[in-house]
Simulated assay, not measured.
Amino acid sequence: MLTLLGAKSAAASAARGGYFLFHWPLLAAIAFALSGCMPATTSVATADPADPAAKASHVGYRSTVAPYTSLRPATPAPWQDRNDAVTPQPKQDR
């Protein structure tokens, strides 16, 4: 892939009649090589989280299933009584 890119760059430079000063694959390789010279870590402004002696706030326990109520099926009741219990009451005529 890089060879093809270099060939295209060389062909474009030859077509323009001049020598192309920068070769992009070469610049990419130099940038990649120089990136290895960067420091691996930066200084931490606060306490290091990897330090076992670092102080941390206490965590309170909250159960995730505390408000649970069983949703087992209710005992069957006559459907007419259940429908009458949830239907809105008829309005009085004025």
Results as ranks from 00 to 15, higher is better:
3 T>E: 11
3 T>A: 15
5 L>S: 06
5 L>K: 07
6 G>L: 10
8 K>T: 07
9 S>Y: 01
9 S>A: 14
9 S>G: 08
11 A>Y: 05
11 A>N: 06
12 A>I: 14
12 A>Y: 11
12 A>M: 15
14 A>T: 02
14 A>D: 10
14 A>G: 05
17 G>C: 03
17 G>M: 01
17 G>K: 00
17 G>Y: 01
17 G>F: 00
18 G>W: 06
18 G>S: 09
19 Y>L: 11
19 Y>C: 09
20 F>K: 14
20 F>I: 07
21 L>Y: 11
22 F>Y: 14
23 H>G: 10
24 W>A: 10
24 W>T: 10
24 W>L: 14
25 P>D: 03
29 A>M: 15
31 A>R: 08
31 A>G: 14
32 F>L: 13
32 F>Q: 11
34 L>A: 13
34 L>G: 08
34 L>E: 09
35 S>A: 14
35 S>N: 14
36 G>A: 11
36 G>M: 12
37 C>H: 10
38 M>R: 15
39 P>G: 06
39 P>C: 00
40 A>K: 02
40 A>S: 12
40 A>L: 04
41 T>P: 01
41 T>R: 13
42 T>W: 02
43 S>V: 09
43 S>H: 13
43 S>M: 09
44 V>C: 11
44 V>R: 13
46 T>L: 12
46 T>F: 14
47 A>M: 06
47 A>S: 15
49 P>R: 02
49 P>W: 05
50 A>S: 10
51 D>Q: 04
51 D>V: 01
53 A>I: 07
53 A>M: 08
54 A>L: 06
55 K>A: 13
56 A>E: 04
57 S>H: 15
60 G>A: 13
61 Y>T: 07
62 R>S: 11
62 R>D: 06
63 S>P: 10
63 S>A: 15
65 V>C: 04
66 A>V: 13
66 A>Q: 14
68 Y>K: 00
69 T>N: 02
70 S>L: 00
70 S>V: 03
70 S>D: 11
75 T>P: 11
75 T>C: 02
77 A>W: 03
77 A>H: 12
78 P>V: 00
79 W>F: 14
80 Q>V: 03
81 D>G: 05
82 R>I: 02
82 R>D: 03
83 N>Q: 12
84 D>C: 04
87 T>I: 09
88 P>W: 04
88 P>F: 05
89 Q>C: 03
91 K>Y: 02
92 Q>Y: 04
92 Q>W: 09
94 R>Q: 06
